[in-house]
Amino acid sequence: MLSINNLCASVEDKQILKGLGLDVKPGEVHAIMGPNGAGKSTLGSVLAGREAFEVTEGSAQFDGENLLEMDVEERARAGLFLAFQYPVEIPGVSNMEFLKASVDAVRTHQGKPELSSVEFMKLARETSKKVKLDQGFLKRGVNEGFSGGEKKRNEIMQMMLLEPKLCILDETDSGLDIDALQTVADGVNAMRSPERSFIVVTHYQRLLDYIVPDYVHVLADGKIVKSGDKSLAKELEAKGYGWLEGEVA
């Protein structure tokens, strides 16, 4: 599904990723944990294709294609989805219109016809129920005036509508109360399938009680310094990140 080799990336000439490697197979859930400033969010941005991030070395293959050569929207259409840590507010652009444009773009790429407005609205309504987002939010501007939890529910709703192959959740748990966390996790778990993979980026172990990963990786100073199964997350929770510093050096 995703194969990253020796990935190096910098932003404004500051190197953040320093030779990161990661293999994600279909159906797997990988958690990436690490201290602040390790490059966790950068990884998501680089994979999504954000312009400000420059890849200086290494490669990333997505479904056999060279991911790094694709435009941002092409990556999304090919099935890569990034749930933002801080979803952007876009006043004036209705959430409904945005979601339909997004779903239509992906469907067109897949050779499917666009949904009619009525079909789409039914789908959107059903999906909003699943993430416990009041329908009123569909009419509002994209994320405009949404609370932190509502924004994250909206992210998960987009993920459900787009049915991506690879979902990257960038600190989706940050700023969430337990109820919202449960809803988000339920959404993710409902979407787990043998064909779909997840990369769950988080600072805290808590989220992994709800979304149980197959693998846990520790990202520190721009690369993966330790990998293990879900017990590694528990160990990190107990010991903090300090004990890994020896391994970074």
């Binding site: 435009d71 929207e73 999304a76 990034l82 945005f98 997004s102 773009a105």
Partner: peptide
Amino acid sequence: AIYYLQTRGIDKERAQVMMSFG
């Protein structure tokens, strides 16, 4: 905001029109 729309599969030109209207 344009980047955000692009990460949802919407091409840049369309994103610009949507935002202008917005």
